[in-house]
Write a protein that binds this DNA or RNA. Sequence first.
DNA 1: TTGGAAATGTTATATAATAACACGTTCACC
DNA 2: GGTGAACGTGTTATTATATAACATTTCCAA
Lengths: 171, 171
Amino acid sequence: MPDTSIPTAIAGTRHDHSRCISTAMTTARSLCAQKGVRLTELREQVLNLIWQSHKPLGAYELMEQLARETTRRVAPPTVYRALEFLLEQGLVHRINSLNAYVGCTHPRQEHATNFLICRHCGVAIEFASVPLESSLQASADELGFVIEAHSIEVVGSCKRCTDQGVASHEH
Amino acid sequence: MPDTSIPTAIAGTRHDHSRCISTAMTTARSLCAQKGVRLTELREQVLNLIWQSHKPLGAYELMEQLARETTRRVAPPTVYRALEFLLEQGLVHRINSLNAYVGCTHPRQEHATNFLICRHCGVAIEFASVPLESSLQASADELGFVIEAHSIEVVGSCKRCTDQGVASHEH
DNA sequence: TTGGAAATGTTATATAATAACACGTTCACC
DNA sequence: GGTGAACGTGTTATTATATAACATTTCCAA
Ligand SMILES: [Zn+2]
Ligand SMILES: [Zn+2]
Ligand SMILES: [Zn+2]
Ligand SMILES: [Zn+2]
């Protein structure tokens, strides 16, 4: 079995991103094969474009890049359908506060959408936390609410940007 | 000083909603006076419309209702500017996953945006939890991330809908 | 009073997402 | 190898959400 996940929170650090890309693509292919769903060329192209960085990418930016890459016109439904597929398979997440999409770093596990998003460099860092999930569950239990899904989007400054003092150069 | 908050999680329960509305409006007026900002007629109208229920209201629905109420045409910037003001003052929250706006139940306190959202009846229940905030902070600390704001949107079934078996009648 | 800031009105446009239908590809089954 | 149903993609049009830019009005402090 191929590599199956990308180290937690690598997004916020210096790292060899080409490894992120290849790991993500390999995992995606194997995961789709396993589930018996088709990772078509288009879907793979879209996933690959999304994985070019850890910054969430808007559907229309994606569309432009896809058009450039394929040298033909690409209409919105094309990318939205690919995104829909990738979301269903858990290969990408949607960042609601940004209307943008980012690759999932551990698509094999069922999990919620928890992100730290840097206001300065734009990076979205996926994270998980057992205590966080339990206290969320406790809050819901208290009110008799049955959780089906959740998304946490934290905005702030990542370590790199804070260390570089980017946060202090603000207008 | 007038009543300052609405009981936690009242949204998901049977209650006298007219009290929610009057409390919210009174608190808003007093809060704006205190801060030296103007709760104009338009802004108050918008806030009042949003408070007609605990279901987040879209900007365009709001626009229509406002147009009906004032019997004149209302353009998008009108409502968006009012919403911007209300968001700044902490009187309403935006639910990113729904592109919709809902009244804040405790506008006097600084706080994040945490909601339980019922898929069946549409109600958004604002909640707070100290353990939740601390575990979130712990996750961020671990990665050197400085939190500026966050939003948690939980989707599921509220107690009322679960009790009424709405959740089981699904297609 | 009066002049500048704040609020609102108005028109146009940007940005994000989906509907509806046509066309092509794949693959199990014959 | 043919065939058709399911799935995937192309294409056009439209809907939904939000903002830009500038004109006009209202408010309030000096
Ligand atoms: Zn990387
Ligand atoms: Zn950063
Ligand atoms: Zn109420
Ligand atoms: Zn409900």
